[in-house]
Amino acid sequence: MNQLLRTALSGLAMSGFGLGSLVALPGAASAQPRPPAAIQETMEIGDEPGRVSTEEVSITEGPYARQMVLFRSNEAPGTVVIHSAERFLYVVQGNGRALRYGIGVGREGFTWSGQVQVSRKAEWPDWRPPPEMLQRQPYLPRFMAGGPGNPMGARALYLGSTVFRIHGTNQPETIGQAISSGCFRLANGDISDLYDRVPVGTKVIIRHKATL
């Protein structure tokens, strides 16, 4: 723990982030359970650490607002279906309906399609940018504990044994865009809503645009 914090502090100090974003971190971090070793805490995601978005921010208007839509599916109610090209995540409700959320997706990277399960859930997850990302953006911290300024946002749903997750964001205006480096991101209010509906073990089906 101490070492992690030191890493976080030195990373943040190096990158010149203000004290404001640091103050809240230790408490939030110690409240979090550590992830199993198998799941890497390295994610390629947004690049505005320190920017604060409140837990309550949801998309309330327009097509990316959370809404019930017509969705024909043979999947059992509760199943999560992600259509990355559309920028939507669906929670199947049965009876021809699904609850739809607007998402942001990776520019590239996550091209894997198929079925996984939610393997773990976390509130205010920590963030460790992977080496490739640090190479491109050396100013990023090496570690950032979970909290309001963390690009991982308010909640995370871990996908199987992959490094990918469905998570929140401190950049809610990026919903509907392809800017994160591989994950599926929702506004914090929306990921919190989804988090409460989706237990560990939920089936997640991921579909991308057909390749040429």
Binding site: T60, E61, Q67, M68, V69, L70, F71, G96, R97
Partner: peptide, 8 residues
């Protein structure tokens, strides 16, 4: 915002 189109 005070009205929604139902999916049916």
């Amino acid at each position: 915002a005070e009205a929604i189109v139902l999916p049916d």
